[in-house]
Amino acid sequence: MSSALLYALAGVSLFTLGLYALIVHAHLLRKILAINVMGSGVFLVLVALGGRTTGAEPDPVPHAMVITGIVVAISATALALALVLRVQAATGRAELPEEPLE
């Protein structure tokens, strides 16, 4: 087991943690945080697996993909926050409606 694998496994844990919070929490801002944590987990897996090269240098292609991914994630976050503010202005609360889920 290499340390890159350790990081990849931590990425999987982050993804699962974010998915759990995304489903469980009702507040929309919390859901946005959860999606960002999920994204960070995916990035961690990508870059960690990109380190398994035969040479000393890691693969630069996943690095470039993750950099663009980080920028896309922040622009999606900004759009989602604007939508949450609209939801708050329209309904008076920034949460999903209560539903009986039992």
């Binding site: 694998l5 999987v12 993804f15 699962t16 697996l49 990109g50 398994r52 035969t54 292609v61």
Partner: peptide
């Protein structure tokens, strides 16, 4: 499942670095 998939990957991959 995801962890198992990661653990069974080969230690070295060709990738695009070359």
């Amino acid at each position: 499942g995801l962890g198992y998939a990661l653990l069974t990957l080969p230690d070295q991959a060709v990738g695009l670095s070359e």
